[in-house]
Design a protein around this nucleic acid. Structure first.
Lengths: 107, 107
DNA sequence: TTTGGCTACATCGTATTACTATGTAGTAGT
DNA sequence: ACTACTACATAGTAATACGATGTAGCCAAA
């Protein structure tokens, strides 16, 4: 499904944080798993932009490892700040979907 | 609650469409009701920006009416395109929250 | 041996959007 | 006059997802 890209703003960062925390640690695979999950049109470039941002904001630790196939991989792991951010993201998300449900329920 | 503003992108347009459809037809009241509902920090300017956009994109019909207090009100109503957009918005929203739930569920 | 396909990362430019700040105006009560 | 409330308007800014494009390594088939 082709979700309006504006609706994804803010969401994708949380999603990427979640994937990293779940053990999906490098860009290419994050893109792949998310696409399989239903974010069909997710651009590869988008994920890398987010990863660069996470690194710049010091939410992740990064290591380079050799890949079995292809070039070096960059492995990401959440640091404490990253974990806090992830929890905060879900808090905000829950708040939002609750409010949206309330809104919709009224009359 | 102070939600990250990025998380609201795309959402707010849908929310405003919904309010208009629900009979809350002018900017000032839309802002007010949404604030009461929990979008505390929603800026008045934001709502007007959205309304201007909706008008420009021909999703609403507009009429001016005298106000009991204060200056003229601009009354908004969804036209067919607006209603279609609103349905589409909820479709996207439902899709998104389902995917997010799936994502979260995995391990 | 060269072509294509897959893995994997990187970045510039663009459009969209929510917010901040600020301004204009009308009405009513003190 | 002053304040408070209603009501709309907009210029400027920061953040972000995406499209396009490029680099690079590996492997298999032609």
């Amino acid at each position: 499904m082709r979700i309006s890209t504006e609706l994804l703003k803010g969401v994708l960062e949380g999603v990427v944080l979640h994937q990293i925390d779940a053990g999906i640690n490098y860009g290419y695979e994050i893109t792949k798993t998310l696409r399989e999950l239903g974010f069909d049109d997710l651009a590869e470039g988008t994920v890398y932009t987010i990863l660069v941002r996470l690194e710049k904001n010091e939410l992740v630790n990064v290591e380079k490892h050799k890949s079995e196939k292809g070039p070096m991989k960059k492995f990401y792991q959440l640091n404490d700040a990253g974990k806090t951010r992830l929890t905060l993201f879900w808090t905000h998300w829950d708040f939002l979907i609750n409010k949206m449900a309330e809104l919709r329920k009224e009359d």
